[in-house]
Amino acid sequence: MTLKFYEFTGEYYALIKAYSKEEAVEYYQENVCDTNSPVIQVTMQYAWQKFKPSLGEVTIEDFVENEVEILLIDPNL
């Protein structure tokens, strides 16, 4: 199974990688905000372009690692 990338654009922004939209929504609600948020699947290239400026201590290996996680999150949290 391949990880996909999902962008949440509601009250709190998040870019999450997960195996399915349902898994991404569940992860968002558990770790970011428990409300419903508009979510769309985005390409890996789009996700990388959003993620790349925030690299800092994070590496490309973290980006492609097969683990469900938040790549970017609203700085207001």
Rank of each mutant, 00 (worst) to 15 (best):
V58T: 14
K52A: 09
L55R: 12
Y46A: 06
E26I: 11
E7N: 08
E67I: 11
E57F: 15
A18W: 10
Q45V: 07
Y27I: 08
F5P: 05
D62E: 15
S37Y: 11
I40K: 09
M1F: 06
A24T: 08
A47Y: 02
N66H: 13
G10E: 04
T35E: 08
K21I: 14
K4L: 03
M44Y: 07
G10I: 04
E67F: 02
G10Y: 05
D74K: 01
D62K: 13
F63L: 07
M1L: 10
V32D: 00
K17W: 12
W48A: 01
G56V: 03
V39H: 02
V25C: 01
Y19N: 10
E23G: 13
E30D: 14
Y28E: 02
F63I: 04
D62I: 03
D62W: 12
V64A: 07
I73Y: 04
Y19M: 11
I16D: 01
Y13K: 09
M44N: 04
T59F: 09
L77M: 15
V64Y: 09
N76V: 12
F63Q: 10
Y28W: 08
K50W: 00
F5S: 07
N36R: 06
I60Y: 14
V32G: 01
K17F: 11
G56C: 09
Y27W: 12
N76M: 09
I40G: 00
E22D: 05
N36G: 10
I16K: 04
E57S: 12
A14I: 08
F5D: 08
E26D: 15
D74P: 00
V25W: 00
A14S: 15
G56K: 14
S20M: 11
Y12H: 13
G56D: 10
Q29N: 02
W48E: 11
L77D: 06
V25D: 02
Y13T: 05
L77N: 03
K52L: 00
V64T: 12
E57R: 12
I60Q: 05
E61S: 10
Q45T: 08
E30H: 10
F63G: 01
S20V: 03
N76F: 13
V42K: 03
V25P: 00
A14K: 14
V68K: 06
A47Q: 07
G56F: 13
S20F: 12
S37A: 13
G56I: 14
V58K: 11
I73T: 04
K4M: 14
A18L: 13
T2P: 14
M1D: 14
Q45P: 00
F63H: 04
K52N: 01
E11F: 15
A14L: 14
A24L: 01
A14D: 09
L71K: 05
A47N: 04
D74M: 07
L55V: 06
